[in-house]
Amino acid sequence: MELDWGVVARAWDLLIDGTWVTLQLFAWSLLLGTVLGLVLALMRLSKYRVLRWVSLGYVWLFRGIPVLVALFFAFFVFGRQVGLSALQAGVLGLGTSAAAYKAEIIRAGIMSVDPGQFEAAECLAMTRRRYMRRIIIPQGIRVMVPTYMSNTILVLKVSSVAVAIGIVELTGITRQLSNSTNRPIELFTAAALIYLFLTTVLIVLQEFLERRFALKT
């Protein structure tokens, strides 16, 4: 068995194109997942029962089905009705799935804040909006950083599933290249290394953020 690593060099531009699509999927679905997750978390903590139940139902649904199924819904059902491109449907499917997990992470973060903080802010006559923004959420963020970041790393890797709806991101382009050059070992190893590089960057970012948000003692 002869390995020809030169095939990676020759395919490098295409691999980078694929990586770029992966990063786009990652960034947009992360944004959607975080914003929607924040909304769901606040709904879950709301005093209105309807909002709590809708949020609970959403999380149960999107954590109960595989991401692939959510992508199918986004692409074949919703996307076809509304006229979404594959990439847009991909972001929708990945983002709505991610939101269910982000919602739980954010909620856990907010709930981890000492009730005494709420009481102190209330006794200082601050409005709820003000103290959520200035006092509670910043402290919640600090608690959330580890789980938020490890879930974010997952979002990056899960972007590979978008290949199932025809999006040519890194995994997709690697499969195509592997089939046309018949050099799966070299090419998939290269793809694996690119993913490892990206996830390692995120791990470093996570450690930086954990230090940045730590309380000063």
């Binding site: 000492d114 005494g116 903080q117 009481e119 102190a120 006794c123 200082l124 006559a125 601050m126 409005t127 003000r130 200035r134 006092i135 910043p138 402290q139 600090r142 309380l215």
Partner: peptide, 25 residues
């Protein structure tokens, strides 16, 4: 009100703790 567990805002300095409410409210 002053609490048994202080309930200071840990991400603010002492002076930031004291100015927060007068500015906000």
């Amino acid at each position: 009100m002053v609490f048994q567990k202080f309930n200071l805002f840990p991400h603010f300095t002492a002076v930031e703790n004291v100015i927060e409410a007068p500015m906000a409210v």
